[in-house]
Simulated assay, not measured.
Amino acid sequence: MNEFWFTPKLTGYGAAPSTWEGYTLVGALLAVVLVCSFVMVRRGNSYRSIFPLPLRVIAISTVIFLIVCAWKTDGSWG
């Protein structure tokens, strides 16, 4: 089934969710960001890296989210 999850915005750049799958994908990304933020706040200044693991998880999740959004959008973003 090749149903689109997102519709392009009428003005600006990007897409908006139009089905429950799209809203679920947005909610999943939001959950990942919130959990990683909570972990970073709880750990405080104990990170020795400039790009700690929670930030890497957020970055990778965001890239995957954008790829799926572009793939499942009905039309172009621009």
Rank of each mutant, 00 (worst) to 15 (best):
M1V: 09
M1D: 08
E3S: 10
E3T: 07
E3W: 06
W5Q: 00
W5A: 04
F6E: 05
F6V: 05
F6R: 03
T7E: 15
T7R: 14
P8Q: 08
P8I: 09
K9L: 15
K9E: 08
L10D: 10
T11R: 12
G12P: 01
G12H: 08
Y13K: 07
Y13C: 07
G14E: 11
A15S: 07
A15Y: 00
A16E: 14
T19I: 14
T19A: 10
T19Q: 12
W20Q: 13
W20D: 12
E21I: 09
E21H: 15
E21Y: 15
E21M: 15
G22C: 12
Y23R: 07
Y23N: 06
T24R: 11
T24V: 13
L25A: 14
V26C: 15
G27V: 13
A28R: 06
A28W: 13
A28N: 04
L30A: 14
L30S: 14
V32E: 07
L34Y: 05
L34G: 10
V35C: 11
V35W: 13
V35T: 07
C36A: 10
C36M: 13
C36N: 08
C36I: 03
C36G: 01
C36Y: 03
V39T: 03
V39E: 09
V39G: 00
V39W: 02
M40V: 03
M40Y: 05
M40R: 03
R42P: 00
R42F: 03
R42N: 01
N45A: 12
N45K: 13
S46V: 06
Y47K: 04
S49W: 11
I50C: 00
F51C: 07
L53I: 08
L53R: 07
L53K: 04
R56E: 10
R56K: 15
V57E: 04
V57G: 02
I58E: 01
I58C: 10
I58H: 02
A59W: 02
I60E: 06
I60L: 15
I60K: 02
S61H: 06
S61Q: 05
S61L: 10
S61W: 08
T62P: 01
T62L: 12
V63G: 00
I64S: 03
F65I: 06
F65M: 01
L66R: 01
L66I: 11
C69N: 10
C69T: 08
W71H: 13
W71K: 09
W71F: 15
K72A: 10
T73Y: 09
T73S: 09
T73G: 06
T73W: 11
T73H: 06
D74E: 13
D74M: 02
G75W: 11
G75A: 10
S76N: 12
S76G: 12
W77K: 00
W77M: 12
G78H: 10
G78M: 11
